[in-house]
Design a protein around this nucleic acid. Sequence first.
DNA 1: AGAAAAACCGTAAACGTTTTCGGGGCTGAG
DNA 2: CTCAGCCCCGAAAACGTTTACGGTTTTTCT
Lengths: 328, 328
Amino acid sequence: MAVTIREVARRAQVSVATVSRSLSSPGLVRQETRERVLAAAAELGYQPNRAARGLITGRTGNLGIVVPDLENPFFTGVLKAVQAQARHADYAVFVADSDEDPVAEVKLLQTMAKQVDGVVLCAPGLTDQQVHEAAEGTPLVLLNRSLPGIPAALMNSADGMRQIVDHLVALGHRRCAYLNGPHTSWSNQERLRGLRPAARRRGLDLVELGPFAPRYEGGLQAADLALAEDVTAIIAYNDIMALGVLARLRDRGVRVPEDVSVTGFDDLTFAALCSPALTTVAMPVAPAGRVAVDLLLDWLAADGGEAPHVTLDTQLIVRGTTAPPSSG
Amino acid sequence: MAVTIREVARRAQVSVATVSRSLSSPGLVRQETRERVLAAAAELGYQPNRAARGLITGRTGNLGIVVPDLENPFFTGVLKAVQAQARHADYAVFVADSDEDPVAEVKLLQTMAKQVDGVVLCAPGLTDQQVHEAAEGTPLVLLNRSLPGIPAALMNSADGMRQIVDHLVALGHRRCAYLNGPHTSWSNQERLRGLRPAARRRGLDLVELGPFAPRYEGGLQAADLALAEDVTAIIAYNDIMALGVLARLRDRGVRVPEDVSVTGFDDLTFAALCSPALTTVAMPVAPAGRVAVDLLLDWLAADGGEAPHVTLDTQLIVRGTTAPPSSG
DNA sequence: AGAAAAACCGTAAACGTTTTCGGGGCTGAG
DNA sequence: CTCAGCCCCGAAAACGTTTACGGTTTTTCT
């Protein structure tokens, strides 16, 4: 059925070993024969069987990525970049969606383990313990999560929060609300790690509410609570929640940004398209995806030494939902 | 390193053949020894090497999916379902993003061919000829594209358009604009295939504009042209364009739905969240993904006979952007 | 020219499975 | 008691590669 290395060898009048060498380690074969082999391979449309190759080399040529939700634009942004970068290095990528279920996550990791050389893991739900155990089975690189001994691609969301605070304070805000996402999530803790000191340093009065579900409905719920706190600005955990907040405020007749300012986090596509357009902070999802596979590949090659953690900058995007507070 | 079948055999005091049989074809081994083998396998945490298995069985246990853009929620919706359904059947899935580049698409298909048992293909950009050639190399199932001899999972977008027309006519609209997407795309042709006869049958005056880029910017551009045509309703090719239209109309002071009604297509998450919420038609992306892998698996098993095409229903979702035309 | 070194290439083993083939033990019938 | 038949199970071949090893040719040096 499929064309094998033996047929190429026969057509090029050489042994299978020579064919293999011609393709994977040039230097070892005479230029002239190599060309003959390449020609034969091309004519037959030969593609090496990666499974067979992997069997002997111990490397599969595959990467895996597991994400909590494939419909979340944040993760698909990462996925897109991972896929592109992997292809660039001649790796194929397996994708697995855990549906935010921690037990599915470990299961997926286990079954993936044998089929890939490494996996980039986006698993907010796993405990540190579980992640470490998983790292025993397969080379891992974490995305937006920091654990000693495991490489990670991080986004500096703490600094994103710092930028939001600076922005709001510069506009003249003195008291604002933060709508927490899930307490256990690393992302939310990072946000707080940037938010609290920045607020203190700038003398911004900070009211922490929640936690809320990081969804549209969470925003609807949170908006009323925030209004009751008499703040002039609302910092949402992410864009989706911010959209919920905007919707609820509009329903209640509160004008944005005149009466209250609102910020999001993530810079989803729709943050730019809604009206007024949402002030938010852009996450370097594509760079993070690229860095993740670079880290993984380096980690596979030079297996020894420290596990590198690289942090990527976030960027505040000022749009229409923030303005100076009304002087009333 | 990894635990192999040989170690399980040694621990269970049997031959490797017996281990293999115990796992993949029970019936052939005595109940008692089978249990011993299963116990040994469990203790060692044995997972069969799928590459080795695939080498001999000729089946990889992998599925592939290629999409034009992983950041398009439509395709990630499909992907999510495909991934879930594949896992359910104990298949892993490779994903490839062609970035809307037809030549990348054929290249990806070729390299995927050897590694998977079949692929679900979302490739609006390929010619029929190219798709047929690709089908020679790998079992294929098409998504939202119909070609004789190749199984397909289709969404009845023609009927979605029919539903839109019925809805608008019932509201009292007599003249409306359709904003074309890319002329060559199968989706746009399907939309027209539903739209034109429905409009004719209902006596709706139809102004066709475009083609436009199926993006936000395309909507901005199209809105002005539509307004100049003196219509009371605008039917956009998809939700993204519709959002562009809404934004442009608002900028120009045209009220929706009082002055003009607008409809989208796809029912993206954000269609429900913008304000006013968008009237649109929901595509059965998840069912389509599931059906696609079912078709693929059936096609692999019973290789012979007709290539089934299954068509899934679409559903009009009436929200806030459609209303009776102002009597003026 | 002769020998040592280098360059090139073929043979065969190995990777972890599945599966065919055949052998041994047991059962039951003649 | 013998033999056919059946049930289990082990030995070994096969899948398509890569690579260690060794052999043959070519080059290089004296």
